[in-house]
């Protein structure tokens, strides 16, 4: 049918006219698949989270299900100490991770942006953990940290520390241990983005600065950094949101332990909904997490005056 219709159409001239005029419906047709997928699998779930946040909803206790008003929220803010603990830990995790990742990522990008022998190989190697998944990162660091044959054993062989130490099960070492594991994977992300942006810095600027006798440090502060600013703001924001939301690494590396020491808010939410089946309460927690993220993002963009100066 379709073929027959196509053949029946008059040839070139009308078609050409149609192509050059902007067809009304075409853009809508083109975004339709994406829009439908996002409506069905993002918008609808978000709305249902808001809806359930006002409900008591627990499939294992159906007799209590029903409208709850703001009960869930009242409980979160007044009685739930775990909410505050996990929120504090999330904030600490995001700030330390993103801060260190940016610092090392920027340094790394500046280094591999230089011209030196072995640059291509160097780049490929230092960027390689970027492609490693959260779960695989966990697997690797479980091997490094395990108490019998991990790094600590070989350190103990050399007289540093004691045998049988497990950094992941000690509340005083678990935070730095997890931070280092996630840095290993996170630094290349920043390095790649910053390197991409570095390559668009106009070389004339450096030459001009050179002629004016500006030192390399000065060139960095006055040319490189201002140029990178928007990219840095945007990537730290995206990474911050990502670090806040991501559960792969901590779920598999520490499981939120020991003794809840490394439970982030999303991990707490996952436990509430998946293990305790308390969907209504988990939805209320999710709503709160959304609002916090949105608020922090807006404040961050405002404070950094994103895109404000040049445009």
């Amino acid at each position: 049918m379709a073929q027959a219709a196509a053949v029946a159409k008059p040839p070139a001239p009308p078609r050409r006219r149609r192509a050059s005029a902007t067809p009304r419906r075409l853009p809508y047709l083109l975004i339709a698949p994406a829009a439908l997928l996002m409506l069905g699998f993002i918008a609808y779930p978000v709305i249902s989270v808001f809806y359930y946040s006002l409900q008591n909803f627990n499939p294992t206790k159906p007799w209590r299900n029903g409208f709850a008003g703001f009960d869930n929220f009242v409980q979160i803010f007044t009685k739930d100490t775990q909410f505050w603990d996990t929120l504090t830990f999330s904030a600490k995790w995001v700030i330390v991770e993103v801060g260190l990742q940016l610092l090392f990522g920027l340094a790394l990008a500046l280094i591999v942006n230089q011209t030196f022998v072995g640059r291509a190989v160097g780049r490929a190697l230092v960027f390689s953990p970027w492609a490693v998944s959260g779960v695989l990162t966990s697997a690797i660091w479980v091997l490094l940290y395990n108490s019998q044959t991990g790094v600590t054993r070989y350190l103990a062989d050399m007289g540093l520390g004691s045998y049988g130490t497990s950094w992941l099960s000690d509340t005083s070492t678990v935070f730095p241990a997890a931070i280092v594991a996630d840095l290993w994977r996170g630094v290349p992300f920043f390095a790649i983005l910053i390197l991409a942006d570095l390559q668009s810095v106009s070389k004339d600027l450096y030459e001009a600065a050179e002629v004016d006798g500006a030192s390399r440090v000065k060139q960095f502060w006055h040319i490189t950094l201002p140029h990178l600013k928007d990219a840095i703001v945007l990537s730290t924001l995206l990474r911050g949101v990502w670090e806040f939301n991501n559960v792969d690494l901590l779920y598999t590396l520490t499981g939120g332990g020991p003794a809840g020491e490394t439970t982030t808010l999303p991990l707490y939410i996952a436990n509430t909904s998946v293990d305790a089946h308390n969907f209504g309460y988990a939805s209320a927690l999710t709503t709160v997490a959304f609002v916090i993220l949105l608020f922090c993002s807006i404040v961050y963009l405002r404070l950094s005056k994103f895109g404000g100066e040049e445009k």
């Binding site: 829009a35 609808y44 806040f244 999710t286 959304f290």
Partner: peptide, 29 residues
């Protein structure tokens, strides 16, 4: 087109929507 701006905004907003927090409704769907 008319809804372009709204659509772009929606795209950006999705960056803040964590898949991890939508597990339960997604499971239901």
């Amino acid at each position: 087109f008319r809804i372009k701006k709204a659509f772009m905004l929606a795209l950006l907003c999705t960056q803040f929507v964590p898949g991890a927090l939508l597990l339960v409704p997604l499971f239901e769907i």
